[in-house]
Simulated assay, not measured.
Amino acid sequence: MHTMHAQAAALAGMLAAATGSEPRSEETDRGIRVEADLPDQLSPTTRTAILTALAKADRYGHARTDSSDTVWAELFNRGAEQ
């Protein structure tokens, strides 16, 4: 059985391999949030790898600013759910 931390590490590794950037992780009261900056150009292979990684999360999304694009994924702490 995988723990939330092991799942977050695997997710971060998948995003690092897909994006070429170092993902950032933050533990919250709900679980773990992983964020990764996207490269300027996404090939179809890269896009598929990113979507495959995000599909492992409980919740995910995309944030765009004038200077960057970032994907984020959250893994929930099942022990904290009520």
Rank of each mutant, 00 (worst) to 15 (best):
T28R: 14
N77D: 07
A57K: 10
L15I: 10
A18M: 09
A73R: 05
D37Y: 05
P39D: 00
T46M: 08
Y60W: 08
R47A: 10
L11H: 02
P39V: 03
S67R: 06
R30F: 07
A80K: 12
Q82L: 11
A18W: 04
A55H: 13
L54S: 04
G31C: 11
E27R: 15
T65F: 01
H2T: 14
G31P: 10
S21E: 04
L11V: 02
S21F: 06
R33I: 13
T48P: 03
Q7E: 09
F76R: 12
D66W: 01
S25W: 00
D58Y: 10
W72Y: 07
S68T: 08
D40G: 09
G61N: 08
A8S: 14
L51G: 12
G13P: 09
Q82Y: 06
W72Q: 07
A10N: 13
A49E: 01
A17H: 11
A49P: 06
R47L: 07
G13I: 08
V34C: 06
Q41G: 14
A63D: 03
Q82M: 09
S43R: 00
A55G: 15
G20N: 09
T46E: 00
A12Q: 04
D37T: 14
S68Y: 00
P44Y: 02
G61L: 04
A36W: 01
D40N: 13
G79T: 11
G13T: 04
